[in-house]
Nucleic acid binder design. Sequence first.
RNA 1: GGUCCUGUGGCCGAGCGGUUAGGCAGAGCUCUGCAAAAGCUCCUACAGCGGUUCAAAUCCGCUCGGGACCUCCA
Length: 490
Amino acid sequence: MQNELTLYNTLSRSKEKFTPINSGMAGMYVCGPTVYSDVHLGNCRTFISFDLIYRYLLHLGFKVRYVRNITDAGHLEGDRDEGDDKFTKKAKLEQLEPMEIVQKYTLGFHDVMREFNALPPSIEPTATGHICEQIEMIKEIIANGYAYEKNGTVYFDVEKYNKEFSYGQLTNRKLEELLEGTRELGGQDEKNGRLDFALWIVAKPETLMKWLSPWGWGFPGWHIECSAMSSKYLGDTFDIHGGGMDLQATHHTNEIAQSQACNHKAPVNYWMHTNMLTVNGVRMSKSAGNGFLPGELFTGNHALLEKGYSPMAVRFFMMQTHYRSTLDFSNEALQASEKGYARLMNAIKLLDKLKTADTSTSNIADLKQKCYDAMNDDFNAPVLVANLFEGARIINSVNDSKETITADDLATLKSMMHSFVFDVLGLKSEQSNSGNDTALKGVMEVILDIRKDAKERKDFAASDKLRNDLAKYKITIKDTKDGVTWSIEE
RNA sequence: GGUCCUGUGGCCGAGCGGUUAGGCAGAGCUCUGCAAAAGCUCCUACAGCGGUUCAAAUCCGCUCGGGACCUCCA
C-alpha cells in the first residue's frame, strides 16, 4: 500500500524496508508466555504490540503465518541449571499436576487475550508437544560439535561457537565483555565455560515433567523450544522474530546460536523487540511485585488503581505509545485514554448520520495517506491515532454543519476510520448489550416521551429529574438539535 | 564494572535539522431552558552548559537526572 513498510531491526539497529522471503507472505514468531502463573499487564503489552503488527501486516494484504508458543515445560528458576522447573514448583505449591497448572494458566491467558481483542495466532505450539523436535535439534548441534553432554545434561559450547560466529551480535557485545560480566564457575559446576547454557537438563528423582532422551530422562532447556518450533513451522530462516526487550540479551541470543549451530543459517531476518511497561518509572515484573493482573485492572481492585478501566481503554492507552518506547502506567494517563477513546468511538458512530455535499472542506485522501505513512514507519500507532483524531474532528464538524464532505470522501473516510480503528488498532465498541434489549428500548422511549412533554410545558424541574435519575443507572441523556439521544456507559 | 536506552508544556506521549503532533486537564467563546456533547480560540514545551549550522528539541561534546540488560522475567 502507498509507499513501503519499514521496521526497526534490532540486528542492524536501524529501520529497514521490509522485504519478505516469499513475496506477499510473512512469517512471524513471537515468544509467548510461560504458563506457570497469571499473565500480568506487562506481558500483555508485548502481545498487544505484536497483535498490532500482525493486524497491520494482514491489512496490507500479507498472508501471515503468526506463530506464538506456549512455554509449558522446563524453564528453571535460576541460572545454575539445577533445581525444579517452574511448573513442578508451582504444582507442588498448588497441589496439582504440572499439566493442571499448564492448563489453568493457558486458559487464563487466552481469556485475557480475548478481552484485549487480540487475534489468536495461526499456530500456538507448546514445548511439551515438540519434545521430539527439540531432541533432534540437540542431537544435530552435538553432531556439529557445538554442544557436549555431562552426566545427562547437554550444554551449548558458547566459546567454541563464538570462534566461527558472533555470539553477542544481537546486543552488540563481544564475548570478552560478556565473560567479564559473568561470575566465575564454582567448584561444583560441570559446565566447561561460564557462558555455556543447557539444551537438555537431567531429571532428578523428584522431577515430575520428564522425557526419555538419548541422554537419559530429562527435560529441555528454555531456549531450545523456540528454535525447534520456529524452524518447524516457519523454516530455517524466516522473516520476523519478536519478543520483549528483556529476552534480547539471553533468550534470543541463545536462539540464534542454536539455530545457527544446527542449520548453518541465520534463523531470522528481522528481530523486533517491544519495550517494557513501567510503574512509577520502574519495570513491571513478577519478581519486583509491582505488576497488576489484567483482572485487577478491569475491576480497579488494586492499591495503585483509583478505579477500573475497560480492556479497550487499556488497549487504546497502549496504542498511544510507540511499541519501542517504555510506557509508564498512571491513573491519570489511563483516564485520559479512556476519554480519548470514547471521543473517537462517538465520532465513528456519527459516520452513518452525516449529510453529504457537493464539495469537501477537508482533504480526506491526504489524511488517509498520512495514516498509512504513520504505520509504514515502523508501526507508529501514536501518529496514526493523532490522524484518526483529525478524522474525528472532521466528522464532528460535518455533523455540526461547520464543514462539508462529498459522498465519495465520506465513503473513503468511513472505510478509513473503520479499518484503522477496528482492523488495525484492534479496538472494538464496548456498547453494553442491554442497549439492544427491546424492553429497555421501549421503556426508554416512554420515559423520553414523558420528558419531552415536561420540556414542552417548560417543566424543567421534572425533565431534569428524569435525566438525573437515569444518570444513576449510568444512562446519559443528551439533547441535541436533532432530538434526544441516550446511551449506557459501561 | 561492562553494554545500551532515555530526560519534551499541569499529565501522558509523537517528532529526531526548518511545519501548531495528538489525547487528557485548565481558561474563554458558540450552541443550549439548563446540563451534556460538539466546534472554535488560548495555554506554544523540548534537563543544563558549550559547539557545528543560514537554521537544533532534533547533530556533536561535557555535566546532572531517570531506566534497562549483563541472573528467571514480555
